[in-house]
C-alpha cells in the first residue's frame, strides 16, 4: 500500500516535471521515444562484465538531465528506493562467480564482483533513462508518440484512459480502504470476505463510471473512434537531434570511449 501510494506521488511529480519547458521538452516526443529505445538497446546489449564502457552512457543521461531540468535528487531518490532489488539479485554473482579476473594491487577482483557492479550500473542507466523520458515528455505525449510510431490507436487510447483514471480510482479505493480501516480497530489485514466486498464494491463503481463515461462520450458524438488532435510536427531540428544522438549512442556502444580516453592519457604520460 505504502509503495503504491508513494509511487503515485512520484507519478504526479513526473507530470509536473513534464509540464516544464526546455530544449529537451521541446523535442518531438517521437524523437525522444526512439532515442530512449536506442539507448536501452545499447546498454542492454553490453556483455556482463562491462563497466567502463557503459560509463559514457551515464554521461549522456546527465547531459540530458541537465538540459531538461530533471533534478538529480529526484532521480537518485528513485534509484535508491528501487535499488535494493538490483542489489539483491546482483549479490548472487560474487557468490557464484569467484573466478579472479584482475588484480588491483593486492586486491584480487572476481568476475562476480565485476558483473555485480555492471548490474548495478545497468540498472541505474535503464531506470534513469525511463524516468528522464517520462519527466521530459509526459506519459500522455509518450502514448501519442507511440501511436504515431505504429502502436494501434485503440491501445494508445487505452493507456491514456488508464492513466487518466488511475488518479480517480486510486483515490476512490483509498477512501473505501480508509473507511474500513477506521472501523477495523487496529486489526490489520482483510479476510477474504471483507476483501471481496471492498473490491467488489469498487469494481461495481468502476463499471458504473465506465458507463457514465461512455454516455458522456456519446453525448459528444462518439462513434467508436477516438479522434485526437495531432499536433506533433517533426522539424529539421528534431531529425538532426535524433541522428546526432543515435550516432553518439552507437559510437559509445561500438567504441570503448572510456578505454580510449584511458589509453590517450597513459600514452601521453612519459
Amino acid at each position: 500500500m505504502a509503495k503504491i501510494e508513494s509511487a503515485f506521488v512520484d507519478l504526479s511529480y513526473l507530470d509536473t516535471l513534464a509540464a516544464g519547458d526546455s530544449v529537451v521538452h521541446r523535442l518531438d516526443p517521437r524523437v525522444k521515444v526512439v532515442t530512449t529505445a536506442i539507448f536501452l538497446l545499447c546498454v542492454v546489449s553490453f556483455d556482463k562484465y562491462a563497466i567502463a564502457a557503459m560509463l559514457p552512457f551515464a554521461l549522456f543521461l546527465i547531459v540530458i538531465m541537465g538540459l531538461g531540468g530533471v533534478p538529480a535528487s529526484f532521480v537518485l531518490k528513485k534509484l535508491a528506493i528501487t535499488s535494493p532489488f538490483a542489489v539483491m539479485i546482483g549479490i548472487f554473482n560474487p557468490i557464484f562467480d569467484q573466478h579472479i579476473v584482475l588484480h588491483l594491487g593486492p586486491l584480487a577482483v572476481t568476475g562476480g564482483w565485476l558483473s555485480f557492479l555492471s548490474i548495478i550500473l545497468r540498472f541505474c542507466l535503464t531506470v534513469t533513462a525511463m524516468l528522464v523520458l517520462i519527466a521530459t515528455t509526459g506519459f500522455n505525449a509518450v502514448c501519442m508518440a507511440l501511436e504515431r510510431l505504429g502502436v494501434p490507436k485503440i491501445f494508445a487510447v487505452q493507456m491514456l484512459m488508464l492513466y487518466r483514471y488511475i488518479f480517480v480510482l486510486v483515490e476512490e479505493g483509498q477512501r473505501m480502504h480508509r473507511a474500513r480501516a477506521l472501523r477495523a480497530f487496529g486489526r490489520r489485514g482483510l479476510d477474504m470476505k471483507t476483501f471481496a466486498h471492498l473490491v467488489g464494491q469498487l469494481l461495481l463503481r468502476t463499471i458504473d463510471r465506465g458507463q457514465r463515461i461512455h454516455l458522456a462520450m456519446l453525448c459528444r458524438g462518439f462513434d467508436g473512434t477516438i479522434r485526437i488532435r495531432q499536433q506533433l510536427r517533426i522539424t529539421g531540428r528534431d531529425i538532426g537531434t535524433l541522428l546526432l544522438s543515435a550516432i553518439v549512442l552507437i559510437a559509445m556502444r561500438q567504441l570503448n570511449l572510456a578505454l580510449l580516453l584511458g589509453q590517450l592519457l597513459t600514452d601521453s604520460l612519459p
Binding site: M1, E5, M161, V170, D191, V199, L202
Partner: peptide
C-alpha cells in the same frame, strides 16, 4: 485503472 486501485488493497 481499477486493477491498480484494487492491487493497493491486500487481503
Amino acid at each position: 485503472a481499477f486493477i491498480f486501485a484494487a492491487q493497493m488493497i491486500n487481503f
